[in-house]
């Protein structure tokens, strides 16, 4: 099972295995990792599942491109950066084994 590393804003790391087909957001919620709120449950409607994708992963194949709905939602999310993504829009595949995502300071 692919392993994903979630880094809280305070530096705390959580390394968990997330089944292929689930989203990076679900991996955090199902393991109760603080820092990803996911208020809309993965509908790309809330932007409270915002993460920064570790630079090493940004141009790897396997990371789905930013969709237009995701881009609109990110446009005003709290503290966005060029490496911002909505974690509910990243489906876990074998190719994402080892992915590292970092949490912003807040989701609201």
């Amino acid at each position: 099972m692919p392993s994903i590393t979630y880094v809280e804003h305070n530096g705390t790391e959580h390394v968990v295995e997330v089944p292929v087909g689930k989203s990076v957001m679900q991996g955090a919620v199902e393991n109760n990792i603080p820092g990803i709120d996911a208020d809309c449950g993965g509908e790309c409607a809330c932007a409270t599942c915002h993460v920064y994708v570790d630079a090493a992963w940004l141009d790897k194949t396997g990371l789905p491109p930013v969709g237009s709905q995701e881009a609109s939602m990110l446009s005003f999310a709290a503290v966005t950066q060029p490496d911002s993504r909505l974690s509910c829009q990243i489906k876990v595949t074998e190719a994402l084994d080892g992915l590292v995502v970092r949490m912003p300071e807040g989701q609201h």
């Binding site: 409607a45 932007a47 709905q69 609109s72 939602m73 446009s75 005003f76 999310a77």
Partner: peptide, 11 residues
């Protein structure tokens, strides 16, 4: 179908 307006509106 206007999520940018929604997000901007919240702010």
């Amino acid at each position: 179908n206007a999520s940018t307006e929604f997000m901007g509106g919240r702010r």
